[in-house]
Simulated scan of single mutants.
Amino acid sequence: MQRYSRQIILPNFGAEAQSHLLNSKVLVVGAGGLGIPVLQYLAAAGVGKLGIADGDVIEISNLQRQVLYNETEIGKNKARTAGEKIAKLNSAIKLEVYDYFIDQASVFTLIEGYDVVVDCTDHFSIRYLLNDACSLLKKPLVYASIFQFEAQVSVFHYGDVPYNLRDVFPEIPDDKSVPNCNEAGVIGTLAGITGSLQASEVIKIITKIGIVNSGRMLLFNSLSNQITQLSISKNSKIFLPNSKDEILQKNYGFFCTNAISLKKLSDLEAALRQESAVLIDVREKNELPKISTLSTLEIPLSELSDKIDVLQQFDTLVFICKSGVRSRKALDEISGILPLKQLYHCENGINIFEDEKKFC
């Protein structure tokens, strides 16, 4: 226990609190500016199992605040890269890496095995999905958000009187009305400060020491160094799911602008060259002609909702049918369930192959 001696000797901490940490399981959703300090400090503190979930890749603009990464890692998946580095920080803890964006198809499988969930994402759809799933499963959710020079931190779904993200922000905002870091900017140090605050809340939840920031929203302005605590009021009119089905059927993909119609064969072939892409024929399996020169997954439109686990394995989904009608329906259906997938459909169906005659 020499590794953790500096925190074990703290008043009210001791071996018992350290034991709680070693036996805990924490899922960190997002391995970017907030997720990095959360992962580093929780791993260093001795959290027994850390889950790291992120489908994003490292970009040059990330390095200003995502200081775990370096220039040689641009283009690599954040979750996998973070996992490799955190493993070197503390080889005694267990790490689970989920190198994809959490969505409705995966959310329950992931969070059910963890004691605490940490929201370090900048996707509104994932944020509200996590909130609702944690509400249903009664999992503490450590929330934070950063914008330019300001941060927010709170803990939801904790204690005898749990508060909810929707108590503060009842509905998913229109993504056009709330600019993200790419559009509005953020000071790099703010990510480190805010992520550290989140890690501190996680430690307090697990060890049961100190006052957890539940029922309050901590606001921090890094320009003025002003810290404000706002009390949260319960909102009786918010969406409170009573079953998994309510969450699975709810549309969290309000900003799904990643759906593209394809008209040319060259565009289809370019889409299929993307990483982890698949062409899905949503016609009935007895319909002809078959597509012969491109690898195709045959899933009739009527069976699509039963094959979400199959679709989840791919990052890019391209739908095709006879005329484009069913493929458009498939796109609309899946965009609400898997909002972060890159989605395409062939607007004119199998006629996209007409000039090349690429059939059996």
Results as ranks from 00 to 15, higher is better:
332 D>G: 11
357 K>W: 08
269 E>L: 13
81 T>M: 05
163 Y>R: 05
15 A>E: 11
46 G>H: 03
236 S>D: 14
33 G>M: 03
202 V>T: 01
236 S>E: 14
312 Q>T: 08
241 P>Y: 10
205 I>Y: 00
24 S>I: 00
94 K>F: 07
156 F>A: 00
229 Q>S: 15
275 E>L: 14
25 K>H: 10
340 L>E: 12
348 N>F: 08
111 I>W: 04
182 N>G: 15
56 D>Y: 07
125 S>Q: 05
16 E>A: 15
338 L>W: 06
156 F>I: 01
65 R>E: 03
358 K>D: 01
345 H>S: 04
23 N>A: 14
234 K>G: 12
187 I>H: 02
348 N>V: 06
28 V>C: 06
208 K>A: 08
60 I>W: 11
199 A>S: 11
148 Q>S: 15
113 G>L: 03
258 N>F: 07
57 V>C: 04
249 Q>N: 11
155 V>N: 01
21 L>H: 00
200 S>A: 11
43 A>G: 01
138 K>S: 14
168 V>A: 06
81 T>K: 07
114 Y>K: 00
118 V>W: 00
222 S>D: 04
211 I>E: 15
304 L>R: 02
66 Q>E: 10
87 A>L: 03
172 I>Q: 07
35 G>V: 04
24 S>A: 09
40 Q>K: 06
128 Y>A: 04
15 A>R: 09
102 I>W: 03
294 L>Q: 10
293 T>R: 13
329 K>R: 13
286 N>L: 13
88 K>H: 13
113 G>A: 10
120 C>Q: 05
55 G>K: 09
248 L>A: 10
97 V>C: 00
54 D>C: 03
14 G>E: 08
62 N>C: 06
253 G>T: 12
261 S>T: 11
160 D>F: 09
275 E>Q: 12
68 L>M: 08
92 A>R: 14
253 G>S: 11
140 P>S: 05
217 M>S: 04
44 A>D: 05
336 G>I: 03
289 P>V: 03
221 N>G: 05
109 T>I: 07
156 F>S: 01
346 C>E: 01
95 L>S: 05
